[in-house]
Design a binder for these strands. Sequence first.
RNA 1: CGGGGCGUGGCGCAGCCUGGUAGCGCGCUGCCUUUGGGUGGCAGAGGUCCCCGGUUCAAAUCCGGGCGCCCCGACCA
Length: 489
Amino acid sequence: MEGKAKTGISPTRAEDFPQWFQSVVRDAEVAELDHVRGAMVIRPWGYGIWELMQRALDEAIKETGAVNAYFPLFIPLSYFEEEAKHVEGFAKEMAVVTHHRLEQGEDGSLHPAAELPEPLIVRPTSETIIGRSFAKWINSYRDLPLMINQWANIVRWELRPRVLLRTTEFLWQEGHTAHATEEEALEETRRMLGVYREFAESVLAIPVIPGEKPESERFPGAERSLTIEAMMQDGKALQSGTSHYLGQNFSRAMEMEFTDEDGERKLAYTTSWGLSTRMMGAVVMTHADDNGLRVPPRVAPRQVQIVPITRDDPAPVLEAAGRLQAELAERSWEGAPIRAQVDSRDRKPAEKRWEWIRKGVPVVIELGERDIEQGVMTMTRRDDADLARDAVPRDAAAEAVAGVLGEIQTGYFEEARERLRERTRHDIATLDQFREFFSGEETDAGGFVRAPWSEDRATEETMGELGVSVRCIPFDAELPSDARCVITG
RNA sequence: CGGGGCGUGGCGCAGCCUGGUAGCGCGCUGCCUUUGGGUGGCAGAGGUCCCCGGUUCAAAUCCGGGCGCCCCGACCA
């Protein structure tokens, strides 16, 4: 072997994490920023992952009783004017449509013409428009709860775009619900956060900390914002899904009223919750390594890639590879046929193998004449850091592969959970210790501190100076009676 | 909006200071070799040097203007 290990991705995670992230996303052909500042092209491999994420999450959302619908991309400017508090939070990031026609100049150039009587906002989120529809649809307490989900694209004119994590346009689902009582709305807010948590952990193998956002990080217009926070491999947090209790703030602005059992007119209580393509960024930053992406089997568009090793007469090998693919497809894993495919493209086998390693296919199987004679297949597991090639008996292949997929799925989760556990400190009690932890060498790689906090706004400034932010107040936090704020004492 | 940088084949860059046939790496195409760990050899295709104007016998290179992009900051549901 050639002495030093050759990595598929450069720089490595340790050398430059942000650069490494971008390289993985590009080299694994997940997505790229192109054409429009901060706008993202999601390539087939990345979109395949998104489709599987969508499928799993959509199912979970529907199980709660919500149904899918679709609302306009364009929102009249006036809809926002009535919700000042809401708009304040992100007014600077709106794409505004002001014209509806183009005129051609003599030199062939095109210019906007025909100004709209009222500018239209490309939706940055849909509370203002869905809420107005709700107001029309809700008349009686019998119409409640109303639970609707929308899969859509969103535009936020971000000043600092980053592929997958913060893009000008992104895809997400946004759920919007209206309830007769505060308790019911709060329960819905919590239930959906639970759905997100379950999705992140069991489908994407990303352990998260569920909790509530401090006031400063709340969604504009929300009474309470719940979040799941994940830890990336650089020890930093990534907000991965949010669920908001909006109280009567939006229903008041939109006159979303109903007649209650007692005949009184009341304002509905609403919630909203969303999860976006940013979650693909979380998958990359949680599971990828220096050889490229590692996709959790449950969302891998291809779970098994079969690379035929052909010689003079490729026919028998291709035929055997085809049989193996069919055999795998007959075996179901996690409720779906194993997604296997033969890569018969005109490329060198070694090139193909590394391409699939880089893209993060959980299992790569090489099949050549020698294997066929010996009744084996050569298998590489993506969760093996050495990418060793093992001879696995060809009979009972489907059974073996299904087992491996399960091991990889749980293995990725365990690995990430262990990292989260290791890099979370529970023993930081004073400001000095806090400063030392977040400015010392120990945290070059980042980390979480779990400690009592007074929720004093001034403390967040102190933390800001250290590049630290309050991610959430975990649901399972228990404060002893003598607890003292880690910042103020 | 404030500060810095950059526009040269598909991608990444050199050349510019000291004007004079437009280059390198990767990728791509063909042939050869090799095929079981990202290999190799030979040949080849591909460029309005961001745009407009100026200086000059001559501009990728110097001067003026414009456009676009990137990085840092403010912002980030």
